[in-house]
Nucleic acid binder design. Structure first.
Lengths: 189, 189, 189, 189
DNA sequence: TATGAATGAGTGTTCATTCAT
DNA sequence: AATGAATGAACACTCATTCAT
């Protein structure tokens, strides 16, 4: 059960890791952000690295859980894919700092911790792949290599955090619709 | 004009930045890799950060130049897109360390230097967008938002360095073909 | 008057100081051992250093009192020496943790506190010396330099905590007898 | 091959470890003593703990080598014992700081490093024991338990660093003679 | 060109102690 | 009596960079 201070610290860390990067953010920076001495921070965190792990772990777990829910529904594969894209992009956009930390900074974790995140990320790819396999088997999708196709679609979605800006011309739903259109219909007229 | 030693140092840095990350790589690590003392390295480099900048700059410039060549050809937009995809993925795969450093580590540059790379990357997006606009205007492509579509395709391609492994089941050309098929034809049967 | 909790804390401290050393033992370690939070410990102790002082002070005072009793008896010097050796070794062996803390860790006290223990230790040397003087004056002992001789015997006894292990081949009484034999009769056949 | 600076640093460390103890001596203290920045110290040492290990290792190795030389001579056991005592005490007295660090501070080493010193110290006890066994077998010594007797004599000698002061009434040779007399002839008139 | 000594600021982390509740 | 949040100074150690030789 996370105390207020723990949440506050995690939020400060997410903000700073997103802005400056994990390595360029010092424990002192985080302490300043929450108004504590840096020594005091260690009542709430185990280490700076652990803080990053918590953030990344929560983020990828959240993505996984949501996608599992979509996959468990009895929608046709086409609609599951549409939902998966919309879910990923809207969550990315709504939690853009956390998503940035997950996708950009998790590599800074030590080997074991990084592997933990990597395993969960691999699981996420598996779930996307499952949707494509379902669509292939139902005859909805014309797809030969479901995993590579999943990696293409996920790659496109995972790039969104790099250019999406809230308040821009298109919101997350708009972009989701464009992505779905592209992946389902293709470019050719 | 880069001396042999300068090239050697840049290659060592690319290798280490890819393996350990920019921040986790010390100047001593690079010196060890090329068999010099770390003080001696400074006869060849301006700073560790400058080394990263050179690597990233060369990488994105190379991507830009190749895409400009493709764009300047008088192929139909569809073929330009196919070539752009194949070019990006084969270059990424052949220079996976450099590409990784460009895409994963350039953020570690200081603000001004990072902006320089960002500007070149934006230029790269522009070139992709141009292909889509050409295809839209020629009636080849059914595309409403060329820039967003470009970002989707480029995102998919920029994710390849994260999962591609040389010697795997599919080579870079195979994957390029799958990507082109997906983006041109879409998934729907 | 020491409460149960105070005794419990002192015992925990002795155990930990012996096992890990004074500096390597944190107040948190002691709190964990007695099942309190470290803040709560300060209801019972003045400071970590004071805890060490209490332990060392009690140990050396105990040694002094016992030796004073022996010295006050009307035994011949030879028997006083035999008793002094047996007393020191059996007490050391029975309270090996406390003795270890006294002999190994008291130096970690601040200057004033350390001097207090040092003064009591000097007093202990004086008592041993007194036995030797008695034996010299009674003609029992052939000894020219009673203080140096006392330091030799005491040194041998003070080393016992470093190698004695309960349950070994010889118990404290056995070792005491061997020591007495050595110091009284010498090695020569 | 130790540079001047390395020797200088080791000497400073010995001096400070003796005066304040290992834990109470900071790397900054050592740097101040030799007139370097504390970061610069790390050109010469691996870690603070390693510095302690070097000092202790050199000290116990020196004791061992000297005793091995004595043991290898063809003197009678009685004379070997006399030389062993004189050697130990004169070396202790001449290098009282180093000896103090060996005997008082080696416990502050981490487990593995401490064990290394412990093994060498055990070897030293073996050598003393060997002298007593020789004297027993030659009929020179009346000794039943050579190892315990060795520990008694060595304990007496290892205590000397605690009370010996150069320039005092007796020098190291005087004290060695008194010790030999005590252990060989015993106290009884 | 190459060295390696030296810097000095900075890092994450520990810890004895205090104190309001 | 007991907690646990908070302090603030201290710690060992790292590192990019400089520079005299």
């Amino acid at each position: 059960m996370a105390s207020n201070r723990q949440v506050e610290i995690a939020l400060a860390a997410v903000k700073l890791f997103e802005k400056k990067g994990y390595h360029a953010t010092s424990v002192q920076d985080i302490a300043d952000e929450v108004g504590l001495q840096k020594g005091s921070l260690y009542h709430y965190i185990h280490s700076k690295e652990d803080l990053l792990l918590q953030i990344a772990h929560q983020a990828i777990t959240d993505f996984n859980q949501r996608l599992e829910t979509i996959l468990a529904s009895d929608l046709p594969a086409k609609d599951k894919l549409i939902q998966a894209i919309e879910n990923h992009i809207t969550v990315s956009a709504a939690n853009i700092e956390t998503t940035t930390v997950l996708l950009r900074e998790a590599f800074s974790l030590g080997e074991n911790q990084h592997q933990m995140i990597q395993d969960l990320s691999d699981r996420y790819v598996d779930l996307w792949t499952q949707i494509l396999i379902e669509g292939k088997e139902s005859g909805e999708f014309n797809v030969v290599h479901p995993r590579i196709t999943a990696l293409a679609i996920l790659g496109a979605c995972n790039w969104v955090y790099r250019w999406f800006r809230a308040g821009g011309k298109y919101d997350a739903k708009d972009i989701s619709a464009m992505f779905s259109q592209l992946f389902l219909e293709g470019l050719l007229a």
